[in-house]
C-alpha cells in the first residue's frame, strides 16, 4: 500500500478567537485485523494498526486516542479544540510497527 500514511485534516475555513472547533482527521492505513489459521487459531504476529493518535495545539496535548484493532481501516477521528491563539494544530498517528504519520493545520483567525 503505497498510500499508507496519507493524512487529511478538515478544519472549518472560518475560525474566530475563542471558538470551539471540530476537526476531522483521516489516515490511509490498513488497520490489520486478527487472522486465524486453518485450525481457527489466532495467528500470533505483530499486527500493523494505529494504536495512538495525539492531537496537539500550540504544542500542548489536547486529546489522545488509544486505539485497538476495533477501529476501521482508513480510520477517521473527530475531536474539538478551543482556538485561543493563532498557531499550529498537529495530529500524529502512531502504528504498531513504528510508523508515524502526521498532519498539520495552521490555525488563523478571520
Amino acid at each position: 500500500m503505497s498510500d499508507i500514511g496519507k493524512v487529511r485534516l478538515r478544519v472549518p475555513s472560518s475560525i474566530k478567537a475563542g471558538d470551539v472547533v471540530q476537526v476531522r482527521a483521516l489516515v490511509i492505513h490498513p488497520m490489520e485485523r486478527i487472522e486465524r489459521d486453518a485450525q481457527g487459531k489466532i495467528v500470533q504476529k505483530n499486527y500493523n494498526y494505529i494504536n495512538k493518535v495525539i492531537v496537539t495545539y500550540l504544542g500542548k496535548t489536547v486529546a489522545t486516542f488509544d486505539t485497538t484493532q476495533n477501529v476501521a481501516e482508513n480510520p477517521f477521528f473527530t475531536f474539538t479544540f478551543k482556538a485561543t491563539d493563532p498557531g499550529q494544530l498537529k495530529v500524529q498517528f502512531l502504528d504498531t510497527t513504528g510508523g508515524r504519520y502526521e498532519g498539520i493545520a495552521d490555525i488563523k483567525f478571520s
Partner: peptide, 24 residues
C-alpha cells in the same frame, strides 16, 4: 472479541467533551 475499541483522553483545552471515529 476484543471489546475495548478506544480510550480517548481529553484536556480542558479540548473545549468540548467530544470524540468521533469509525469503528468495527
Amino acid at each position: 472479541r476484543i471489546p475495548v475499541v478506544t480510550r480517548v483522553t481529553l484536556s480542558p483545552e479540548a473545549g468540548r467533551a467530544f470524540m468521533g471515529a469509525n469503528i468495527r
